[in-house]
Write a protein that binds this DNA or RNA. Structure first.
Lengths: 201, 201
DNA sequence: TGACATGCCACACAAATGTGTGGTATATTC
DNA sequence: GAATATACCACACATTTGTGTGGCATGTCA
C-alpha cells in the first residue's frame, strides 16, 4: 500500500465534497457534485470519480443512484490509532497505524483526517488526571497548546508520551499526573493536544 | 411529544430495513424497500413511508432518490443521555433524555436502542477508577453484572449513581472509588453495566 | 347497511440519475 | 512535430427512481 497520495486541488475538492455529503448521511449524485464544483458536464464529474476510484479513495456501484462509498483510507469518520511516531516525519507513517477509531460529529466535531489522531495510552503516569492504561486518547495536531494542557509530546528517544504541559519562568516542561513520576525537563516537541479520552470496559 | 409509539409489525420491519441500510451508509430506494419486504407495488411502500413520516420517525425530500432520513427518535446511531430514571418504569421516560450521543459500531458494537444508554457523570465519587465529573458513561442495560463491575444503580431516592458492585458474604453493596465516600448498603437496583467512558476536553 | 380505515396491487408518467461517445483547449514530454 | 495527460464541455440515451391515480379486498364501527 503506497503511503504517498497526490491529489490535485480539484480532485481534493471533489473528495471533500463527497466526504461532507456522506457525513451528512446522503452521498451526492453526479450532477450534485458538478453543481457544487462548477462543472457543467456530468462527464467531467465522472472523469473525477474515475480518478478517485483508481487512487483507491472511492468505491461505486453501477447504475445505482448516489452509490458512492468512501474507502477506509478516505473516510473522515475513521481516525487512525497509531503506536509510535517516527521522529522527523511530519506526517504519520501508515505502517504505524494499529487500527481505526470510528469517530463522529458528537465526539470530535468535524475535524479533518489530517488534524486528528488517536493514541492508546500506556502506563499509569496520568492516573491522577483520570487517564488509565489502555485508554484511547484523541489528539488534535499542532494546536494552540498552552500551560496546563495535556499534550502528546515527542521525546528525544522517539517515544511519544502523554503529559501535562507546564511553564515555569518562561520555560516549558512536562509533568506526569502521578507522584511516582518525576517531571521531564529534557528536550521534547509538542505534537498535539488531548481533546478526548475513550475507555472501553 | 408523545412517548408511546405503536408500530404494526410490518411498519417496524420497514423501519428496521431503513435503519439497516442507513447504517450501511446508503438509504434504500422505494423499490428496494418493496423488494426486501415483499411488496409488489411502489405505492404500498409509499403508504408505509407516509405512515412513518406521520409518526415522526422519518423525514424525506421530494423528488430526490434515496432521500430518506431517520429522525433522532428512530435512529440506531443515537443513544440517549438521560438524567434521572423514574422508579418503577421499566422503560426510560423520554422526558428524562437530556440529549443524544452519537454512537458507532466501533465504540459500542451494534447494540439496539433498547439496550444501551449514556449517563453524564456527576461528582467525584469514582475518581480513583479514572471516572471524572462530566464524563459520559455508556451503560448496557440488564447485563450479567457481577462482582467488581462498575454499574449504574438506582437508589431508593430515585437517584442514579455510578458505583462499583461488591459482594460480601453473599450480599451485594455499592462502593465508591474515592476514600471520602462510604460504601452504600441501602436498597438499590442495578440498571446496567458500564461499558465505555468518554471524556471531552 | 353505510362509512371508514387498513393493507395491498397495477400501471402510467415524469423527474432524477447514470452511461457513453465525441469534442476542444492547454500543457508536457520525447 | 507527435504522443500523451490534464481538464473540461455537449449531448443523447437508458435506467433508475419518485409521483400519482385508481382499484380491490378485508375488517371495524355505528
Amino acid at each position: 500500500m503506497e503511503n504517498k497520495l497526490y491529489l490535485t486541488p480539484k480532485q481534493e475538492k471533489v473528495l471533500n465534497f463527497i466526504r461532507k455529503r456522506v457525513g451528512e448521511r446522503l452521498p451526492p449524485t453526479i450532477r450534485e457534485i458538478g453543481e457544487e464544483l462548477g462543472f457543467k458536464s456530468t462527464g467531467t464529474v465522472r472523469d473525477y470519480l474515475r480518478i478517485l476510484m483508481q487512487k483507491g479513495l472511492v468505491r461505486r456501484m453501477n447504475n445505482k443512484s448516489r452509490a458512492i462509498e468512501l474507502t477506509e483510507r478516505a473516510s473522515f469518520n475513521k481516525i487512525p490509532i497509531i503506536g509510535t511516531i517516527m521522529a522527523g516525519k511530519p506526517n504519520l507513517a501508515y505502517e504505524e497505524i494499529q487500527g481505526y477509531v470510528d469517530s463522529d460529529d458528537l465526539f470530535l466535531g468535524r475535524l479533518g483526517f489530517d488534524d486528528v489522531f488517536a493514541l492508546r495510552v500506556k502506563g499509569d503516569s496520568m492516573v491522577d488526571a483520570g487517564i488509565l492504561d489502555g485508554d484511547i486518547a484523541i489528539i488534535k495536531k499542532r494546536p494552540d497548546a498552552c500551560n496546563n494542557d495535556i499534550v502528546a509530546a515527542l521525546l528525544d528517544n522517539n517515544e511519544v508520551t502523554l503529559k501535562r504541559l507546564r511553564s515555569k519562568s518562561g520555560k516549558f516542561h512536562l509533568e506526569a499526573a502521578n507522584a511516582n513520576y518525576p517531571p521531564i525537563f529534557e528536550e521534547f516537541k509538542v505534537i498535539g493536544k488531548l481533546i478526548t479520552v475513550i475507555r472501553k470496559y
